[in-house]
Design a protein around this nucleic acid. Sequence first.
DNA 1: ATGGCTCGTGTAACGAGA
Length: 254
Amino acid sequence: MKIATWNVNSLNVRLPHVLKWLEENPIDVLCIQETKMTDDKFPQAAIEAAGYHVVFSGQKTYNGVAIISKLPMADVVKNNPLYEDAQQRIIAATIDGVRVVCAYVPNGQSIDSDKYQYKLGWLAAFHDWIKSEAAQHPQIAVVGDYNIAPEDRDVHDPAAWEGQVLVSVPERAALQRLLDIGLADAYRLFEQAEKSFSWWDYRALGFRLNKGLRIDHILLSPALVARCSACIIDRVPRKWEQPSDHAPVVATLD
DNA sequence: ATGGCTCGTGTAACGAGA
């Protein structure tokens, strides 16, 4: 099973990219974030016509998540049952015995913002829910746009970013608490090139100069770590016309 | 240089993203 996560930054704009990428890559499960559309606008028919099942949870303008899967999905959950949230940021499903959680973690905007406090509270509740999900599902993958760069090596210019949102100590601690449940960052199970990122700013030639952050992650339970033979970031669609600012992260489970 | 670009909204700028 190949499982991927990709923040598409508007499925309205990026549906052709998603379909092209699925056509060119043998992906079994693709979790997408920032669909930015209500469920009545979701392009379900186009995705099903491409040979996939899809479940989705969206809202107008902001957020919105979906899981696209070759195999049928069961036990679909939208949002965290432990956390009242008007924003649509989580969808989960069980696929071929694997519990897949697709999450769009709040950005936080800046560390002095109300949105930063929302992010930390959201992450605390997410931790509690994932802990119970992991206890019930030995094979669990918790994937998505975490909006957190785990370490300085995941940041193009750690000095410039020090203490800022996406790299601050409380955010990194929240991510570490998720790992402490027993989950592993699939990307770091393997040797990777230095300066590997999953997001690059649209501005100031961010991608061409590789000024990026690694903020999209695939976290795996021990039973899935045992099955995981590769994890890569696919930079190819970031080079396409009118790209998302994020690249897909792909884990191979044998 | 706290911007740079790209979204949605709505049809002009502006908020938000990261």
